[in-house]
Computed example of a mutant assay.
Amino acid sequence: MSGSLQSFFAMGGYAAYVWPAYGVFFTVLLIDWLAPQFRRRRLLRDLRGRMARQNARNERTGRKSTAST
């Protein structure tokens, strides 16, 4: 059993190429999965900041806000 497991991890002598390729693949897959979540969070934060600045500007000028919060 351990001999076949060792040969599996050795990948017929190509382990130095195969395992890093798996590592790169799963790293890219993870980044591809997380990037939209971080982008959404950043966009929502920027939008909240814009809305707060707009509301502050409207309060200074005496206009009513058109956005409902």
Rank of each mutant, 00 (worst) to 15 (best):
E59M: 15
R60D: 03
T27N: 07
G12F: 02
A16N: 15
R50D: 12
S2K: 13
A52N: 02
Q54V: 14
T69F: 14
N58W: 09
N55C: 13
Q37I: 15
S68N: 13
N55S: 11
Y22R: 06
A56K: 02
L34P: 04
M11G: 03
V24K: 04
T61Y: 14
G3Q: 11
G3N: 13
I31D: 06
S7T: 06
A15R: 02
Y22M: 07
D46L: 12
L5S: 08
S7D: 06
V24H: 04
F9G: 05
R40E: 08
G23A: 01
L34E: 04
S65N: 15
V24S: 02
L29E: 02
E59V: 13
Y17L: 09
A16Y: 10
L5G: 07
L5P: 08
L30R: 04
R60I: 04
P36N: 00
L44K: 10
L34H: 01
A10R: 09
G12A: 01
L34T: 04
G49V: 06
G49Q: 02
Y17E: 13
F26A: 02
G62C: 01
L30H: 03
R60G: 02
T66Q: 08
F38I: 03
R39S: 06
K64Q: 10
T27V: 11
S4V: 10
A16P: 10
T69W: 13
N55Y: 12
T27A: 08
K64G: 09
I31Q: 10
L43A: 03
F8W: 01
Y22K: 07
A21M: 07
Q6F: 15
A35F: 11
R45N: 08
N58L: 11
M51S: 12
Y14L: 15
A21K: 06
S68Q: 13
R39A: 07
L47R: 07
A56M: 04
Q6V: 11
R50F: 12
G23H: 04
F38W: 06
A67D: 13
G49F: 05
G23F: 04
Y14F: 14
R60T: 02
G12Y: 01
A21H: 07
A67T: 10
S7F: 12
T27D: 06
L43Q: 06
R40D: 08
V28P: 05
L34I: 06
Q6D: 10
T61V: 10
A10D: 14
A35T: 09
L30Q: 03
R40Q: 07
F9C: 05
S68I: 12
G62F: 00
V24Y: 03
G49E: 04
R50M: 15
F8L: 02
Y14T: 15
R45T: 11
F9R: 06
V18M: 01
G23S: 02
R57M: 11
N55P: 14
L5D: 11
S4Y: 14
